[in-house]
Computed example of a mutant assay.
Amino acid sequence: MTWTLPNILTVLRLFAAPGVAIMFLYFARPWADWYALALFIGAAVTDFFDGWIARAWKQESKFGAMLDPIADKAMVIIAIAVLTALSGMNPWILLPATVILFREVFVSGLREFLGDTAGTLKVTKLAKWKTTAQMVAIAVLFAQGVFEHYVVMWSYGMDEQMFRDVLNGDVEDELGLRMVYDGYYYSWFLGVILLWIAALLTLITGIDYFRKALPHLKESA
C-alpha cells in the first residue's frame, strides 16, 4: 500500500468513526456533543476530498477503493448508534436508524458473498446522495444535542410558566434562550426529516443493489 494523501485521509476517517462515540466516554456534555460534531463533520468532509484528490492527482488505488466504503459505513453506523442511545430510543430516530443499519449489514454481507463479482456492481449517483443525506442528517442531530443541553442549562430553575414567558417575549431574555430553543426545535425536526429521507434512499439503493446482484447469485447456485 502507498501512503498517498487520499489513503491517509481515508484512514483518518476510519479512526474518526469510533472517536465520535469515545467523546461521550471521556467528556461531559455539551463538550462531548461539540467534539463529536466537529469530528464527524471533519471526517465527512474528507469523504469528499479523498475521492476528489485521488481522481485529480491520479492516485486511485485498490486499497483506497476497498477502505473508503468501510470508513463511510463505520462512520454512519457508529454515529447512528450514538444518536439512538442519546435520544433515549426515540422511535422517530430508532425506526429510520434500524432501516439504515439493516441495509448496511445486508449489503456488506452480500458483497462479501459475491467476492470479486461485487466489484462489477458500481456505486450509483443515488447511493452517493444516500451517503450525503445520512451524513448531513447525523451532523444536524449532533447539533441538536448541543442546543438541547444549553436549553436545559439556561432554563434551570425556571418553572414552566416562566419558561414560556421568556420564549413568548413577556420576560426579558437575557441569555438568548429563545434563540437556543429555536436552534434546538428546528435542528430536531430538520434532523429527523433528513434521517427519514436518508432511510428511504438507503432502502431504495439496497433493493436496487440486491436486484442487480440476483443474476450473480443465480450463477453461484
Rank of each mutant, 00 (worst) to 15 (best):
M135Y: 07
V136K: 08
I138D: 10
V140G: 06
V140R: 05
V140E: 01
L141R: 07
L141P: 05
L141T: 05
L141G: 02
F142M: 09
A143D: 03
A143L: 07
A143S: 09
Q144G: 05
Q144E: 12
Q144C: 08
G145Y: 01
F147S: 07
F147L: 03
E148D: 09
E148R: 14
E148V: 01
E148A: 10
Y150W: 15
Y150I: 03
V151Y: 08
V151F: 08
V151L: 10
V151D: 10
V152E: 13
V152P: 04
M153D: 13
W154I: 03
W154E: 12
W154P: 01
S155R: 05
S155E: 04
S155I: 01
Y156M: 10
G157S: 07
M158L: 12
D159T: 00
D159C: 00
D159L: 00
D159H: 00
E160Y: 01
Q161R: 06
M162V: 04
M162I: 00
F163L: 08
F163V: 00
R164T: 07
V166N: 05
V166S: 08
L167C: 03
N168C: 03
N168Q: 11
N168R: 14
G169E: 10
E172N: 09
E172G: 02
E172Q: 14
D173G: 14
L175G: 10
L175R: 15
G176A: 15
G176F: 11
L177V: 10
L177H: 11
